[in-house]
């Protein structure tokens, strides 16, 4: 075999050839984490309140972090190996978005980072993830609950990713260069998550009797967190006005249209169910969470909090 033949016919040359492909990160080998913010201007946009920007980054960062946590619980438990890998990919994407957004919150306004013992090497993104109490988390309540079965997870992912994609698409033109860069990266990822969830929603709805009844039960369980997604806080409204953030109320119509399409091909009616109410006037974005959430945090934060000066 000539070298040329070898070049074209070896199953691994195209994948592993280090002479011509210096970067093999596109393949599912190991994991390298590249910095999508390389070269991005990190100064806070002129006239913007850094504290409001930080709070906003925590909102969409915490949404991703908490949802990634729940999805990662599927690892080694998914319906098949291929699905195990797919759910882990989605969790990894969201975890990556969360890290960038938490780090952005810290650089925009360092006072959002909880204090740690002097000399602690814990980086700001970890101080925010592991040393904030539940009331300081700004995620919506949709992402907090137990995974339930695969149908519940799929319904939640459908709702979450349809909504998040609509937000990120608009955020790509944020005046904050970091938010815009994170959103641009996130749009590609979340487009895939939405397709994944929509396809499974359709499949389960039109699969077997059992899968259909599980989807409907999942919809019942998840839908009561729907309306909260579109209730703007004052911070979101004001950042939307200044061209930095997105008012979630403005994506409601688009999200409804997309969901209706999925429901329609799936032969499922759009639910009309009572929605979870506010707690003392507040929702997830205001730090008012579900009972499940503090359990989730207790688990997630246990090792980090035992070693506030730990180096990992």
């Amino acid at each position: 075999m000539t070298p040329a033949d070898d070049f074209h016919d070896s199953a691994y040359d195209g994948l592993l050839d280090h002479h011509t492909v210096a970067d093999d990160s596109q393949w599912a080998f190991g994991t390298e984490f590249e910095d999508p913010l390389a070269g991005v201007d990190t100064t806070v946009p002129a006239g913007e309140d850094p504290h409001a920007l930080a709070a906003y980054c925590l909102m969409i960062g915490d949404d991703a972090l908490v949802n990634a946590h729940r999805l990662s619980e599927w690892c080694s438990r998914a319906p098949d190996l291929e699905e195990d890998i797919a759910l882990a990919n989605i969790a990894l994407d969201l975890l990556g978005q969360a890290r960038l957004l938490l780090a952005r919150a810290a650089t925009a306004s360092p006072d959002v980072v909880p204090p740690l013992p002097p000399g602690s090497p814990v980086p700001p993104e970890d101080a925010l993830a592991f040393f904030r109490d539940d009331a300081a988390f700004r995620n919506v309540r949709l992402v907090e609950g137990d995974n339930g079965d695969f149908a519940v997870t799929i319904v939640r992912l459908l709702l979450f990713s349809t909504w998040r994609l609509a937000l990120l698409e608009r955020l790509q033109s944020s005046r904050d260069q970091v938010l815009a860069a994170v959103a641009a990266k996130g749009v590609k990822e979340v487009t895939y998550h939405r397709d994944y969830a929509a396809r499974w929603f359709l499949t389960l709805s039109r699969g077997t009797e059992e899968s259909r009844s599980r989807v409907l039960a999942g919809l019942d369980a998840v839908w009561r967190f729907h309306d909260e997604l579109f209730v703007p806080t004052r911070i979101e409204a004001s950042l939307a006005d200044s061209g930095v953030g997105v008012d979630p109320a403005t994506v409601a119509e688009e999200v409804a249209g997309l969901l209706d399409e999925v429901f329609s091909v799936s032969g499922v009616d759009r639910p009309d169910l009572p929605q979870v109410g506010a707690v003392a006037g507040g929702r997830g974005r205001d730090g008012r969470h579900t009972e499940a959430f503090s359990h989730l945090l207790a688990e997630m934060q246990s090792v980090a909090r035992a070693h506030p000066s730990g180096r990992w």
Binding site: A28, A86, N89, K188
Partner: peptide, 13 residues
């Protein structure tokens, strides 16, 4: 979909 998840990092090219 599985092939993209299992064998590539969903590289668009």
């Amino acid at each position: 979909r599985h092939a993209r998840d299992v064998y590539t990092r969903r590289n668009e090219g």
